[in-house]
């Protein structure tokens, strides 16, 4: 276990660093992207890359600190559970947001390259 601790620490710090990078990228995307749906993509980067990954990293760091005793397993377990729920629920949230915004026509789809959903609706395969 002692040998594994430095490895866990390094992996944890790397994951936290990836999270910080993703947060910055998501912030830039939020400011620069043209419409709602692409900005939602930036928000998803923030939720998964910027929250899920660093929480896993924090759990690994907590596991590697032996001074905490048994408490470190509680910390790491809570972190892993939170991360898994975030991984499941953040995409669901952005999916529902995008669907509601698309069908209620609340968001303007202006710079549009391709809209497969519109073609499906026209062909009658998907109900609004």
């Amino acid at each position: 276990m002692n040998l594994l601790n430095p490895v866990l620490t390094i992996i944890g710090y790397v994951l936290v660093g990836i999270g910080a990078f993703c947060q910055v990228v998501a912030g830039i995307g939020m400011n620069r992207f043209p419409n709602f749906f692409v900005r939602l993509h930036a928000a998803t980067i923030c939720a998964i890359g910027g929250s899920f990954v660093p929480i896993i990293g924090c759990s690994l760091i907590a596991l590697s600190i032996e001074e905490f005793g048994v408490i470190r397993f509680f910390l790491a377990g809570a972190g892993f559970v939170t991360a898994v729920f975030l991984l499941i629920l953040a995409p669901v949230g952005s999916h529902l947001l995008a669907k509601a915004a698309y069908f209620s026509k609340a968001a303007v789809l202006y710079p549009k390259a391709v809209d497969l959903l519109e073609e499906d609706v026209e062909r009658g395969e998907i109900r609004e």
């Binding site: 729920f85 499941i88 629920l89 669901v92 999916h95 529902l96 669907k99 509601a100």
Partner: peptide
């Protein structure tokens, strides 16, 4: 209601 993805994950959570 909303799509089946939303319903299923709501039932889980």
């Amino acid at each position: 209601g909303m799509s089946i993805i939303g319903k299923m994950s709501t039932r889980v959570i």
